[in-house]
Design a protein around this nucleic acid. Structure first.
Lengths: 203, 203
DNA sequence: TTGACAACATACCGACTGGTCTGTATTATC
DNA sequence: GATAATACAGACCAGTCGGTATGTTGTCAA
């Protein structure tokens, strides 16, 4: 009765998943160690391989159950009903930088982009799942740009698709650059450039 | 007499270096295998560890002796005396895409960015060397923008430093995005966005 | 109460890792 | 031609890797 449940499979699975996310975020997927993950999660290999069939399967779950929802909450949702995507992207980005800065996590880069850069060319399973997130992101932004044009907040000559592709790519590049340089100053500089671009889309 | 030289240390070293570059480009640094490298190079571990003290040292040499000169030739040199950086960046980028496309190497990403994303947060030796290349790149572009302003080819209100930081970051992001999506179409779309940005800097 | 199955724990496995050691052949120096 | 140093070759090493096989225990339906 000390423990309400000696078995809590869903929670065990979740602990492993969280530990795996942290490990892969730190060392990359290939560099990530199953042994360290179970140690960190306070679990065992038996538990891990009970819930996930192999390392790849664990990695896939990290993408779908942890990374995707995070990106969605941070980046898609604020754009969901936006009719002024220029203002909203700028606001979202400022918000994001502020939050990550406080957690001191900025210089570790974007977990989505980190995994994508490493694994997309090596494993089709990863590539498909990661690309699904990216394409949804671009899609959300494209729709926002289209709405912005209709609302007269964005120039009509702008191609929503191209602009969306560029902004998402640029964001990934900017965060990655700041990570390499370990410099928030550089993040600000490149960010200014992106803001200038966005402003240039105004009517 | 069949072989003019049974020993050619410089060439041996070079073969190992090239094989290491290819291996790391394919599988990343952590995923790269010393055994596969020596096999591919037609050498042995004795030779490899004679020329390089350990795996990291080999990686550092790949950055300084292979990656850096490549980036320099492809991206800095065309900007060296540019007074119209907008036109020259566009031209360089088109040139680059064309060449990589022919070699079918586009979808493998930029070797510099690949290594940077993976190793910069993990190893200070890598980070320093990779950042040196990036900062030189930004520096070259910043100078070019400044010259462009003087020549009346770029608006005076443009900050050369911010614009350079943004363009380099965006380039990395665009190439990485195309790699993840395995899509040259996406590369074109995002590239159009970058071109639009560059045009917006005209007086 | 009793199977039956899910949820683990643990010992263990072969493959492979980066790296070292010892021996040997080639080359440069005097 | 002797000597010393360089440039390898290849066996070998401890350790770690992802993964498995087997055993045990909690859970729950009948």
């Amino acid at each position: 009765m000390k423990k309400t449940a000696t078995r809590a499979p869903e929670e065990t699975r979740r602990r492993i998943l969280n530990a795996a996310f942290a490990e892969f975020y730190r060392t990359g997927f290939q560099g990530g160690s199953i042994n360290r993950i179970v140690a960190e999660a306070g679990a065992t290999k038996g538990a891990l391989f009970h819930h996930f069939k192999d390392k790849n399967d664990l990695g896939y779950a990290v993408v779908e159950e942890i990374i995707q929802p995070r990106i969605r909450a941070s980046w898609f949702d604020p754009l969901a009903d936006s009719i002024d995507p220029i203002a909203d992207v700028k606001y979202t980005m400022r918000q994001f930088v502020k939050e990550e800065q406080e957690r001191g996590r900025l210089v570790q880069g974007c977990p989505l982009n980190n995994l994508a850069q490493e694994m997309s060319p090596l494993d089709e399973g990863f590539r498909r799942r990661l690309e699904k997130v990216y394409s949804a992101w671009r899609e959300a932004m494209e729709v926002a740009f289209a709405r912005g044009i209709k609302a007269g907040k964005v120039r009509k000559a702008v191609s929503p698709r191209n602009a969306a592709a560029f902004v998402v790519a640029a964001l990934a590049g900017i965060i990655g650059t700041a990570k390499n340089a370990q410099s928030e100053e550089l993040l600000k500089q490149a960010g200014e450039g992106l803001f200038d671009y966005l402003d240039s889309l105004r009517p």
